[in-house]
């Protein structure tokens, strides 16, 4: 699998994602500078966390207009896989690749802690190694993760199955106490209609190695690897025929 990690001035989770893809999973991985207008044939593009462009104007607003994001948009429209984590999720929202917006956390604080997520869908390229209803432990680290959208849009998201992870208590039940940023319907991650673009506030790359004491995030990357492997195998068979 060929992977690209988009780097903007102020990205700070780019190396963590690179490490997981390259060294933990052994995949061909490269950094893509925000001024690059080509993704170099990547199967997966990750828009990582951080403070792109210093969070000027609104988190993600300026990065959303970078040349690299124009290329990410073309990649997404062609069915390519795109994963936005934390600030990367905010960038995908600002770019209009995913619906909704982020507000300041209701606690008014930067929240950096371990939370629990419930897997809402296990049939996506990003979640096939999980099972629906499974509870994961994953860290969050953000000040603007309070997901909002119009009520009708939220209803549509739910009906279309575009809510991928939700903040829950340890037993998997939605509990506002655990929805620390105040997200509408405790939404932690959403995908687009086609399911090839995922945005999530929690950090799977920070829990993808035994030494970190938590590997709940590893299966997200491994799911993508399975998906791309199956896809290229299928393409290979079609060529052979």
């Amino acid at each position: 699998m060929k992977c690209g990690v988009v780097v903007s001035p102020g990205s700070n989770c780019d190396h963590d994602v690179y490490h997981v893809l390259k060294h933990v999973l052994g995949q061909e991985t490269r950094f893509l500078w925000h001024r690059d207008s080509s993704l170099g044939g990547c199967d997966l593009v990750v828009v990582p966390g951080g403070f792109s462009y210093g969070d000027y104007l609104r988190a993600g607003a300026l990065a959303a207009l970078s040349p690299a994001m124009a290329a990410v948009r073309r990649h997404a429209e062609a069915g390519g896989l795109v994963l936005g984590i934390c600030n990367g999720f905010q960038i995908l929202l600002e770019a209009g690749l995913l619906p909704g917006a982020m507000l300041r956390n209701r606690t008014l604080r930067f929240e950096c802690r371990q939370l629990f997520l419930r897997v809402e869908r296990d049939d996506l390229p990003f979640t096939s190694r999980y099972r629906a209803g499974q509870v994961l432990r994953m860290p969050i680290a953000h000040a603007e993760g309070n997901y909002v959208a119009e009520d009708e849009e939220l209803d549509r998201l739910e009906a279309a199955g575009e809510v991928v992870f939700r903040y829950v208590g340890p037993d998997g039940e939605v509990d506002e106490e655990w929805n620390v940023n105040g997200s509408a319907r405790a939404i932690a991650a959403v995908c687009n209609r086609a399911g090839n673009v995922l945005g999530m506030m929690p950090h799977p790359e920070r829990c993808a190695e035994e030494i970190l004491g938590n590997i709940d995030g590893l299966d997200l990357f491994a799911s993508i690897l399975d998906h791309v492997g199956q896809r290229s195998q299928k393409a290979g068979l079609e060529v052979a025929q």
Binding site: L57, R58, A61, L65, A101, L103, V148, E150
Partner: peptide, 8 residues
Amino acid sequence: KLLANPLV
């Protein structure tokens, strides 16, 4: 397009 996010 940029100065405001019309959603919010």
